[in-house]
Amino acid sequence: MEVILSVDERTAIAAIVGRVDTIAANDFEQKIEKTISSGVKKIIIDMEKMAYISSAGLRSVLILCKKAQASDVVLVWCCMNSIVRKIFDVSGFSKLVNVVGSLDEAKERDFDGKTI
């Protein structure tokens, strides 16, 4: 798994490439967590190239959401493929976190910050 970061003043875009499975989950969590504490206000997780997310990965999503909330950072999850979308749907994560279809929407929209 790889995390490709592009950061401007207020928004960071983290493109995830590959599988976020049990082994990669920790790495994924640490990298995004670093971005949370870097001072940006919004982090868009671009999941277009994320092939799969395991339940350990979902737990990382959960932890990241909690941390983002504590740091007053908005996390937006966008561009999921069908497999990942299904995992998010089935597990109910789609309803827990900010999920949008496109990167533009993720950039433009204001999120009031869902609470978990």
Partner: peptide
């Protein structure tokens, strides 16, 4: 059709 949320979070 759909499922409820996971347990242990909300």
């Amino acid at each position: 059709e759909s499922t409820g949320p996971i347990l242990g979070v909300l």
